[in-house]
């Protein structure tokens, strides 16, 4: 697709969703619509004056109950490039015992009349709960092990730009599936776009019922990588997992870390992805992470484009 800068959001039909909480809420055409919108946002960030006026006068609050450098700055840059007033709020605690409840926080922020809240929270369903208590649009920037919809969208955009298509590809998602919201959103999105999905992980990092969410399930990395077009690695929370979920980092790396030997089983033109932040030497060989097949920095760039598209779509659409 040619890189023609977006003029206005009016080029697209109105987006009918008020919030973006879960990929599961989106129909296939809405996913494609968001990817097309994001495609048009890519050149905006590449031109000298990186701005569009579409969200001028709007207020965006980034409410992060979990620390995140890259997602928060990506949303901040996306909002600012569209002309929105962006306020960052980091909330250190999310537990009831430590004071204000999530619902209280929602009511307080709602009274400041923002147009969109971008929320990350450590508990699954927290963003959904918050969206029920506010009058503005809400974007899920990650809720526990539930979903991270903009990550799945930016991954899909990255794949589409590198492969020229999405449907019909085979994508492997490898690592800590059980605790990963990125894996869940990607499985839902890729499934909706008729991608063959594989999950590859040791049994104890596979959640119950995963065979219903992925096309195929593998516990052997080499077996699972055979003939795939895309390899998505997941971050292993090794500080938490070591000794509990897996015996050691070195054993994990030996069997599930992506190195040249294992990558050789994938298609010769397979690309390597990672949502970041990476643990080099835990789930991925540094040489692969920084090598020619890695599209990890492209993912970061597409992240801004996708978030611009989502903000624009939610805030300029028909809202009842």
């Amino acid at each position: 697709m040619a890189d023609t800068p977006a003029r206005t959001s009016g080029d697209f039909p109105p987006f009918r969703q008020r919030h973006l909480i879960s990929i599961a809420d989106l129909k296939q055409h809405e996913i494609i619509d968001l990817l097309d919108r994001a495609e048009r946002m890519v050149p905006v960030s590449r031109q000298e004056r990186k701005s569009l006026p579409t969200l001028s006068g709007k207020t965006q609050i980034n409410l992060f109950f979990e620390p995140s450098t890259r997602t928060q700055s990506s949303f901040e840059i996306a909002g600012k490039r569209l002309g929105a007033l962006v306020v960052n709020m980091s909330v250190k605690t999310s537990s009831v015992s430590k004071g204000e409840t999530l619902v209280d926080t929602a009511a307080t922020l709602n009274a400041m009349r923002p147009d969109v809240l971008v929320v990350r929270h450590g508990a699954a369903g927290a963003v959904e709960l918050l969206s029920q208590k506010v009058g503005c649009s809400v974007i899920n920037a990650g809720d526990g092990a539930h979903e991270h919809p903009t990550q799945a969208l930016l991954d899909a955009l990255t794949i589409r730009r590198h492969k020229g298509r999405i449907s019909g590809l085979t994508v492997a998602i490898c690592g800590d599936i059980a605790n990963s919201r990125v894996a869940r959103s990607n499985l839902l999105l890729l499934g909706a776009l008729h991608v063959r999905t594989r999950v590859i992980a040791p049994r104890n990092l596979l959640p119950a019922g995963i065979e219903h969410l992925a096309t195929e399930v593998f516990t052997d990395m080499e077996e699972g990588l055979k003939g795939v077009d895309v390899v998505m690695m997941l971050r292993l929370q090794h500080e938490r997992a070591s000794g509990k979920m897996i015996p050691s980092v070195r054993e994990y790396y030996r069997f599930y870390g992506l190195d040249a030997e294992k990558l050789a089983f994938a298609n010769p033109d397979a690309i390597v992805m990672h949502p970041g932040p990476m643990n080099r030497g835990v789930e991925i060989d540094p040489a692969i992470a920084d090598g020619s097949r890695s599209v990890i920095t492209d993912q970061v760039e597409m992240g801004v484009a996708v978030r611009m598209a989502v903000l624009d779509a939610l805030l300029s659409g028909d809202q009842a």
Binding site: A124, G125, H146, R181, R184, A208, G209, I210
Partner: peptide, 9 residues
């Protein structure tokens, strides 16, 4: 089960 997995719980 599957439902807990889908909800991320």
């Amino acid at each position: 089960g599957l439902f807990a997995t889908v909800l991320g719980l």
